[in-house]
Amino acid sequence: MRLRPSDLVYEGAVWAVAGFAMLLLLAPTVVVLITSFTGGQTLKFPPPTWSVRWYVELAQSSELIGAGWTSLKLATFATLACGLLGTAAALGIARSRSTTARLLDSLFMSPMVLPAMAFGLALLMVFSVLSVRLSLWTLAIGHVVICTPFVIRMVSAAVQQLNPALADCSFSLGASRWYTLRRITLPLIGRGVFAGCFVAFLASFDHVPVSLFLSDARTEVLPIKLWQILEASLDVRVAAVSGVIVVVTLVGMLLAERLFGLAANVQESR
């Protein structure tokens, strides 16, 4: 292959931009981890001295730990509901070419594009008109809508790769629909279901706009608590919380990759 000077410039430019993009992608994670071990009172970077004092403060901060538990409970409820409803729906619509199925697919995916702030306000109005008291359950309803698209995407991608002949074989050998679903279909799309649930869990744990309208003092969630702290003062405790979140997410990602090939599932679903 003959390399022209212009090709060299081109290669250099592509690598420079890609290198910048990779640096951008990596930077926040590294910055958060380093900052969380600062010994100082401010978010000075690089930190003037090193210490674990902010992690000690975090361990003693009951409000932050309480908010963390609420978020974990909420994300668990939301993920279970999304996993069940989303998998059933994806099985129904992924293969179908009918107009109804296409419309339903667009409907289920639309929370990814429509402004979540508008949806949060709308849901608050519904509960207010129905005079339903806000609770962890009303919050979970909002989160299920927000997180369902992730499950639908990944399960649909898994269903589309499934060989339809397998289910037909099972039927022709006399297996019932339910038995085929349990013994043939679900084991084959299981990785997609787990990957979808994993991403849905993280999305719920992280979600703010809907919680902003639907959570009150009793159901304070972690991201909103962090937002309030950061709005009021640039408190270094947030760095410690962020450090914990980064490490847990990384470990979760590596486990998910080992257990059900997270990366392949995420990629195929796009």
Binding site: P28, V31, L43, K44, L230, S242
Partner: peptide, 26 residues
């Protein structure tokens, strides 16, 4: 792929916080 997925799955509040540290006065 991991470089792309890591920030995607890390909480947006955490990533925003990182940018406060990166762009801050100090």
């Amino acid at each position: 792929l991991f470089l792309i997925m890591m920030p995607m799955l890390t909480s947006a509040v955490v990533r925003t916080f990182a940018w406060i540290v990166i762009l801050g006065r100090e």
